[in-house]
Design a protein around this nucleic acid. Sequence first.
DNA 1: GATGAATGAGCCTTCATTCAT
DNA 2: CATGAATGAAGGCTCATTCAT
Lengths: 218, 218, 218, 218
Amino acid sequence: MKFPKNATKKQVLGEFRTGGIVAAAKQVIAVKGFAAATMDEIAEAAQIAKGTIYLYFKSKNSLFEAVITSIMERLVAQVQEIQQSSKPPKEKIRRILKAMLEMLDAEQAFFRVYVSEFPCLLPRSAEGSTTVIDLDQDFVTAIAEVLAEGMQTGDFITEEPRKVAYVLRGMTRAVAIHKMIEHSSESVLAALPLLSNLVFQGLAPPLKRAKSGTPRPR
Amino acid sequence: MKFPKNATKKQVLGEFRTGGIVAAAKQVIAVKGFAAATMDEIAEAAQIAKGTIYLYFKSKNSLFEAVITSIMERLVAQVQEIQQSSKPPKEKIRRILKAMLEMLDAEQAFFRVYVSEFPCLLPRSAEGSTTVIDLDQDFVTAIAEVLAEGMQTGDFITEEPRKVAYVLRGMTRAVAIHKMIEHSSESVLAALPLLSNLVFQGLAPPLKRAKSGTPRPR
Amino acid sequence: MKFPKNATKKQVLGEFRTGGIVAAAKQVIAVKGFAAATMDEIAEAAQIAKGTIYLYFKSKNSLFEAVITSIMERLVAQVQEIQQSSKPPKEKIRRILKAMLEMLDAEQAFFRVYVSEFPCLLPRSAEGSTTVIDLDQDFVTAIAEVLAEGMQTGDFITEEPRKVAYVLRGMTRAVAIHKMIEHSSESVLAALPLLSNLVFQGLAPPLKRAKSGTPRPR
Amino acid sequence: MKFPKNATKKQVLGEFRTGGIVAAAKQVIAVKGFAAATMDEIAEAAQIAKGTIYLYFKSKNSLFEAVITSIMERLVAQVQEIQQSSKPPKEKIRRILKAMLEMLDAEQAFFRVYVSEFPCLLPRSAEGSTTVIDLDQDFVTAIAEVLAEGMQTGDFITEEPRKVAYVLRGMTRAVAIHKMIEHSSESVLAALPLLSNLVFQGLAPPLKRAKSGTPRPR
DNA sequence: GATGAATGAGCCTTCATTCAT
DNA sequence: CATGAATGAAGGCTCATTCAT
């Protein structure tokens, strides 16, 4: 009666359910925010019974963690792939910025909450898993390593690559916030040249510029 | 029976209570977050009865608005003062960055929520006053005008000063997030050189363009 | 220092305050109903401080009792005067009906609650005084005695004068309810002929009985 | 999984709960009055958890509406059935009076509030449904039409059938109030002959009586 | 006496979680 | 496994009452 297939079936079904619940939760959270999202609404959006959610998630908080994780995992994977590729550091940074901006465009609806209530969830992660924090660390680490690499190649001047990694992320988020508050119709990705320039010049070794002339013509 | 003094006394007492409640709320929110902070806790922290809060604030939301406003007002005032001063644009930007970083150091406990749930509150502000949004707009506008000024003096090259203003703020917040997550003991203000450099170089007219004079010759 | 005049003054002032509070309470209750009327509103309507009410009334309930009493006292006085006058019974009943209808017109605003929540207050009267119940009893008794008198004169045939007294009152109230619900612009008093007729004919000794003597011959 | 039976089971359970809650609410309200009745007490009386009530009723007010409606619906149905029957008008009125008095006996406990705070609830009905007002209108209309019918048959003299309909109801309520206040052990229904007589004579065309003799023998 | 700021018990309502079916 | 009715703890808010001024 118990084939291996059966186990697989269950696993598949399980992942199917899990995915549907997470997707539904993401959608509801995007509209209502973390606190205001109720299990009833999520269950309805997922077209399952409320009790069923508790077969796959220990609690509301663990579901929310899964939601954030599902977004971060993809982004972290992309960034790590870029980091481990064989492009020059500046190109890597450009691609990372691009990936972040694209994610912000894609998850725009969810973003309001993603940025906003995210740190609020950090303490709660302590409950069960440290996955969200861990993922965030992986993300930052990947960027920091690209920066460190760029320092060795002379592309960047950065004494605190980790801190700068946070700053890069903060810059991309800021663009999304700008779009959100000012109701811009322009895509977040459109800010890529602006941010690239800012970063490349900003992190460039100052000597060259000092050599070539004064910024303020007179 | 009705001296001016009497009125003053009440006003003073009123502001005293208001201030105490806001301070208590700020503290509780800093620990628990907006949603999790309860009026009971805030009342206890303020050492008054729960009902008393409602003598000074219409609702939980309006109290939270007052908390955010109390922080933003000071920062906006500083930034506007800097903007209207007669310093060169770069110095203005440096001072604005400094003010933001100092605020983040001062409100460190509250910051987790300030950054985090801030956008979440924007829609709610519509309820009563538009003060929070308005303040935020004033804040961004002040920075954007300094950037615009810098563009005319040739210090900065920025086609979208407003968007860049958001980016500058995002960068300072990122430093606070870095400190928070990595549990750094270093002050947020310590990142001022890093950010100043990044911004000044990042926004500086590119060398080629600096050489050739006007960006768009005609 | 303590003249009799002083005492009088206090008494006068006391009654002045009491009257003002009762009037204010009546007005507020008329608009909001007993339960929804708050001491704050009453105080505001009376243009005094909330605490002052408690100098003259033990509690919200006792204030409400005073409000009802103030209305009933006048009506009871009128009815008793009519009862003790030397008019024929039918004329007395007519005048009593008129007095009740006029009261309902006069207290129209308050009536919604007077009729409505009045019995609800009866149990509460047990708290302090039995005045409201007592007044109501006096009222009913006066009418019942007129009916009894009319029975002796042969004007009415009523085996249960008390019960009929309640019915008469119920009829007048019904007219007020009709006006209230159907939003009639006609005065309640306009129903006096209708009610008089109904009562005089309804309570008149039946023809057969008048002729044959005993109602059930055999 | 989804038999019609299943649906029925739920429906049955739902009606069971609804009925139990309404019954419990009716009982609590009868003792405490509308305003003083708390959801806690009602839940306890219904032997369910407080939250369960909200599965079946949107709010305290809607529960109260359901309570009143549950009583009125039966009465209105009875009265309409009587009105549409083929009895002579006088018999119809007698039966309507009987139905009203029986209802008052049956709902004696609840009556104090039914009469009392009922008009107070009318404005609130506007919130959701107009059912309570509608039912009341149907009730009055049915009676008024019987009266109009009686006018055509020459049984009654009534220029304002609607107003008289209110008066008839007011008379029956008065009997219940009499019983309540005077703590009579006699049933309310016992007043049927008294009221019938009063109404039939009171509404009878006066000419016949004038013909057959003088009301006041001398 | 008069005031009105302060109190805190108590209310309605929500919603995460459970468990019998 | 899935369900969804039931639960009950907890929160925001009101308001009658008190008391220091």
